[in-house]
Computed example of a mutant assay.
Amino acid sequence: MKRFALAVALATLAVCGPVSAVFAATAPCEETLKALRAAEATAKLSDADKNKVSELETKGIERCNADDDKRADDFFAQAMKVMGK
């Protein structure tokens, strides 16, 4: 009986561990957007970089509104990279 309980406990951990890591991996897109806008306010960018950041921000907001936080955060991270942050 103890072996069965141990096997069930290990199986539960094996399934729940990766699932919780997936949900914990991304930050809420609203928080990431706030950080992006704060960085954008202090960044000195060329017109081409401003357009690229604006385009990525728009795509990120679109994904954020669709409750796709992971892809929204990816767009925001790309915009941060353009700004050198």
Rank of each mutant, 00 (worst) to 15 (best):
K52M: 07
A27W: 11
P18L: 05
T58M: 13
E57H: 10
L10C: 03
K44P: 02
N51W: 04
L45N: 07
I61Q: 14
G17A: 05
A21D: 00
A27Y: 09
A27M: 14
A41Y: 08
L10R: 00
T12N: 00
C64E: 08
E62R: 09
K85R: 15
V15W: 15
R3I: 07
E62H: 12
K85G: 06
A11T: 02
V82R: 12
L36C: 08
C64V: 06
K34T: 10
K34G: 06
C29M: 05
G60C: 08
L36Y: 10
V8P: 00
E31A: 08
R71G: 03
L10E: 00
A11D: 02
E57F: 01
D49C: 03
L36S: 08
Q78M: 12
L6V: 08
F23L: 11
L10N: 00
R37M: 05
L45H: 07
C64Y: 14
Q78A: 13
A39T: 02
V82I: 14
C29I: 05
R3W: 12
K2S: 04
K34R: 12
R63F: 15
G84S: 12
V8I: 14
R63A: 15
A77D: 10
K59P: 00
V15T: 03
L56V: 07
L10F: 01
A5N: 06
T26C: 01
A25C: 03
T12E: 05
S54I: 02
K81Q: 13
E55H: 10
D69K: 05
A21S: 04
M1S: 11
A11W: 09
S46A: 02
N65S: 04
T12D: 03
A11H: 09
T42P: 02
V82H: 12
S54A: 14
C29Q: 04
K50T: 05
A43T: 02
V8N: 10
A39C: 05
A43M: 04
C29Y: 09
R63W: 13
F76Q: 07
A25Q: 06
A25T: 00
A11I: 04
S20D: 03
E30G: 11
A41W: 10
E30P: 03
K52N: 10
C16G: 05
A79Q: 14
E40S: 05
Q78V: 04
A14H: 01
V8L: 15
V8A: 14
T58C: 03
L13R: 05
A35M: 10
L13F: 03
E55P: 00
K70P: 01
N51R: 10
R63E: 15
T12Y: 10
N65K: 12
R37S: 04
C29H: 07
M80H: 15
K52I: 06
L56Y: 13
P18R: 02
